[in-house]
């Protein structure tokens, strides 16, 4: 009789032990991850003891900043320095998970390699990847770390550059690419006085802007930043337009079934709650990228 009870107790304890904690094979969803399971030593990592993060090379602003030191294999910016929005968010999440700065290891993986089937060489990838349900079938997405908005780009020194409300934007000639949510945003929300110009592709819209044939172009924010800062000599972001309707967001991507997702999501939730995420956005995007909000007034 005593032997039976002992066996039952062992079985019970074993069952409890098995039930708690992230086993390497369990499919990670937030609900099944307990608090202990996200402690640093329990995490499901490619290289134990360090957080391996993938991003694209070159590493573009405002996602990465600070330039590259001599001898670095990174172009434009080196993610190691913690500067730039995605770099900063990554280090903030890593800190939440218990990693020190030096325990974060960056590797370069191009966007289209991040979702190829098979085991990943990274714990997660962070490179302006938009969530959509089709993609979520191939990889696991974290929750949003950045909400995309439409933005208005113009040339420096032109009257439209100082616009801050829809009412002010209305009187200008805007342009967008055919078939985009940007175009829909213009006719559906801004409703300018003059019919917007429509072009086959984004490059044509940019050309028209630089020719002064349109006053401002509308495109999603990441694109807008690149256009204003890199493609145009004298471009400027007039502002980010408020989200009206369906929201688009960026997420980190993980190997499908990786339990790490749950832990990262908890980290993100914490960062949102204590305002860190907003502060980083203000620091690297709204402020530094000079992308002020435009209001619907």
């Amino acid at each position: 009789m005593r032997r039976l009870a002992a066996l039952a107790l062992v079985a019970l304890l074993a069952g409890l032990a098995a039930g708690c904690g992230g086993s390497e094979k369990s499919s990670g969803t937030t609900s099944s991850t307990g608090a202990n399971a996200c402690s640093k030593d329990q995490l499901n990592l490619v290289d134990s003891g360090q957080l391996t993060v993938a991003t694209g090379n070159p590493a573009y602003p405002p996602w990465f900043e600070g330039g590259t030191p001599k001898g670095s294999s990174w172009k434009i910016n080196d993610p190691d320095n913690g500067k730039g929005y995605e770099s900063a968010v990554t280090y903030a999440v890593a800190k939440q998970l218990g990693f020190t700065k030096s325990e974060v290891n960056w590797i370069a993986v191009p966007f289209n390699q991040t979702y190829k089937p098979g085991p990943k060489s990274f714990d997660f990838a962070i490179e302006q990847i938009s969530y959509n349900p089709q993609r979520a079938k191939a990889v696991a997405f974290s929750n949003s770390y950045f909400d995309e908005n439409q933005s208005v780009v113009a040339l420096q020194g032109t009257p439209i550059a100082t616009a801050t409300t829809f009412a002010q934007l209305k009187k200008y000639k805007l342009g967008a690419q055919i078939g985009t949510t940007s175009y829909q945003y213009i006719v559906g929300n801004i409703k300018p006085d003059e019919k917007p110009a429509v072009y086959d592709n984004l490059n044509d819209v940019i050309t028209a802007l630089s020719n002064h044939q349109i006053d401002g172009l509308v495109t999603d924010f990441p694109g807008a930043y690149y256009i204003a800062d890199v493609q145009l000599d004298n471009g400027t972001i007039v502002g980010r337009l408020p989200t009206i309707g369906a929201e688009e967001h960026f997420g980190m991507t993980f190997e499908k079934g990786n339990s790490l997702v749950g832990c990262v999501n908890r980290a993100l939730a914490a960062l949102k709650q204590d305002g860190t995420l907003q502060q980083l956005e203000q620091q690297w995007i709204t402020g530094k990228a000079k992308a002020p909000p435009i209001t619907q007034g």
């Binding site: 917007p196 110009a197 429509v198 072009y199 044509d204 028209a208 044939q213």
Partner: peptide, 15 residues
């Protein structure tokens, strides 16, 4: 002419 911006009948149909 639509390729350089103006919205004419074919472009409008595309939209």
């Amino acid at each position: 002419v639509a390729i350089i911006g103006p919205v004419e009948a074919f472009r409008q149909a595309q939209i």
